[in-house]
Simulated scan of single mutants.
Amino acid sequence: MAVRTTGRHAGDTKSRILDTAETLFIECGYEAMSLRQITSRAEVNLAAVNYHFGSKESLIHSMLSRRLDQLNHERLKLLDRFDAMLGARLTCEHVLGAMFIPALRLSRDPRVGGKAFLRLLGRAYTDPSSFIRDFLNAHYESVAVRFFDAFQRALPHLPREELGWRLHFAIGALSGVLAGTDTDSLIAEFSQGKSMNDLQLIARLASLMVAALKAPLPDGTQLAAFAAVLGDASDAAADCAMACGEEERSACGAAIASP
Rank of each mutant, 00 (worst) to 15 (best):
Ala2Glu: 12
Ala2Lys: 14
Ala2Trp: 15
Gly11Trp: 09
Gly11Leu: 13
Asp12Gln: 10
Asp12His: 09
Ser15Ile: 10
Arg16Cys: 08
Glu22Gln: 06
Glu22Asp: 01
Glu27Ile: 07
Gly29Leu: 08
Tyr30Gly: 14
Ala32Ile: 04
Met33Trp: 02
Ser34Ala: 04
Arg36Asp: 04
Ala42Ile: 08
Ala42Ser: 04
Asn45Met: 13
Asn45Ile: 10
Leu46Ile: 11
Ala48Ile: 08
Asn50Ile: 14
Asn50Lys: 10
His52Asn: 07
Phe53Cys: 11
Gly54Glu: 01
Gly54Cys: 09
Ser55Phe: 07
Ser55Leu: 07
Glu57Ala: 14
Glu57Ser: 10
Ser58Asn: 11
Ile60Thr: 02
Ile60Val: 13
Met63Ile: 04
Leu64Tyr: 05
Arg66Asp: 01
Leu68Pro: 15
Gln70Gly: 14
Leu71Phe: 10
Asn72Tyr: 09
Glu74Pro: 14
Glu74His: 03
Arg75Gln: 02
Leu76Gly: 12
Lys77Met: 12
Lys77Phe: 14
Leu78Asn: 05
Leu79Ile: 07
Leu79Tyr: 03
Asp80Ser: 06
Arg81Trp: 08
Phe82Cys: 14
Asp83Trp: 01
Met85His: 09
Leu90Val: 08
Leu90Ile: 07
Cys92His: 09
Gly97Glu: 06
Ala98Ser: 13
Met99Trp: 09
Phe100Pro: 11
Pro102Lys: 03
Ala103Val: 05
Arg105Val: 15
Arg108Glu: 13
Arg108Met: 11
Asp109Lys: 03
Val112Pro: 13
Gly113Lys: 00
Lys115Glu: 12
Lys115Arg: 13
Ala116Arg: 11
Arg119Lys: 09
Arg123Lys: 06
Ala124Met: 07
Thr126Cys: 06
Thr126Arg: 01
Ser130Arg: 06
Ser130Phe: 12
Ile132Ala: 10
Asp134Trp: 07
Asn137Trp: 02
Asn137His: 05
Ala138Val: 12
His139Ala: 15
Glu141Thr: 12
Val145Cys: 13
Asp149Pro: 15
Leu155Val: 09
Leu155Gly: 08
Arg160Gln: 03
Leu163Tyr: 07
Leu163Met: 09
Gly164Ile: 12
Trp165Ala: 15
Leu167His: 00
Leu167Ser: 03
His168Val: 12
Phe169Gln: 08
Phe169Met: 14
Ile171Ala: 15
Leu174Gly: 09
Ser175Ile: 13
Gly176Thr: 02
Gly180Ser: 04
Thr181Asp: 00
Thr181Pro: 15
Thr183Gln: 08
Thr183His: 06
Asp184Asn: 04
Ser185Gly: 11
Ile187Pro: 08
Ala188Tyr: 00
Gln192Ala: 15
Lys194Pro: 15
Ser195Glu: 11
Ser195Leu: 14
Asn197His: 00
Asn197Gly: 09
Asp198Trp: 08
Leu199Gln: 10
Leu199Pro: 14
Leu199Phe: 15
Gln200Phe: 12
Gln200Met: 11
Leu201Ala: 13
Ala203Cys: 05
Ser207Leu: 05
Leu208Asn: 04
Ala211Arg: 04
Ala212Ile: 11
Leu213Lys: 02
Lys214Ser: 15
Lys214Asp: 14
Pro216Val: 05
Gly220Tyr: 05
Gly220Met: 04
Thr221His: 11
Thr221Gln: 10
Ala224Phe: 02
Ala228Asp: 00
Val229His: 03
Leu230Gly: 01
Gly231Tyr: 00
Gly231Cys: 03
Ala233Gln: 01
Asp239Glu: 08
Cys240Pro: 10
Ala243Ser: 10
Glu247Pro: 10
Glu248Met: 07
Ala251Arg: 00
Ala254Trp: 00
Ala254Ile: 04
Ala254Lys: 00
Ala255His: 02
